[in-house]
Design a protein around this nucleic acid. Sequence first.
DNA 1: GTAGTTGCAAATCTTTTGCGCGACA
DNA 2: TGTCGCGCAAAAGATTTGCAACTAC
Lengths: 126, 126
Amino acid sequence: MSVTPQRMAIYRALLEAEDHPSPDTLYRRIHRKMPSLSLATVYKTLDALCALGLVQEASVGSETKRYDANLERHHHLVCTECGGIMDFYDRALDAVAPPRRLSGFVAQGISIQVVGRCAECARTRS
Amino acid sequence: MSVTPQRMAIYRALLEAEDHPSPDTLYRRIHRKMPSLSLATVYKTLDALCALGLVQEASVGSETKRYDANLERHHHLVCTECGGIMDFYDRALDAVAPPRRLSGFVAQGISIQVVGRCAECARTRS
DNA sequence: GTAGTTGCAAATCTTTTGCGCGACA
DNA sequence: TGTCGCGCAAAAGATTTGCAACTAC
């Protein structure tokens, strides 16, 4: 993949950012310095950088909201292939607690997802 | 909050579902049995059920995608108030590993978010 | 020239909102 | 009659796609 001023600017803005910006936020930030930049380029570039492994999506999860009526303590298996989410139970993970010192952040809970490929996708696709 | 056939149907469909459906998926499922149901009602009802604590969003995170160029092993503090995401580092959490037996699911990694209120929001708002 | 990249505009999808209607106390 | 919840349609956002122009080899 070739290095272009746009891609450079996007990657550098992301390296400098402390706040895990959304594509739109990133776009507005860079647009000040580089007014010709388009939002579509930001989206395309972020996809490419993700594919290269240079950046990551900050939150695991699906594109769209998903709901759960299971209120027991449990964790989620998230399939990167099909986007499926499965519940699972694990005593060891239940015991994981937020650290005590978080410099002002008041923890209310902790959420754990195991990311990988579900049985179906692991079997079917290479 | 009053109990209506629509709300009943949505809540029950969610209790029966194993797959953490999206609002749209849920709508299509229930719509077969209750053709008058509208998607807007599904959205409104899911919001209400969330507020009551009867259901949860399956994935922590913001409405929109957020990116991160920090590839070091780290975890996220997610503020429920302002939606902010902050990095933090914690050896104990680094050591948390996916369980071995996951009935066919092939784990590739584990993602941990501490949910709560950031210093700013904890101070400012009640 | 060719391949790859950009910006624009349109299209698509998801989610939210405004509003009139009907149910029910 | 007043309140609440519903469905519909429009609106608002977020993301993707098609395409013509441009650049760098």
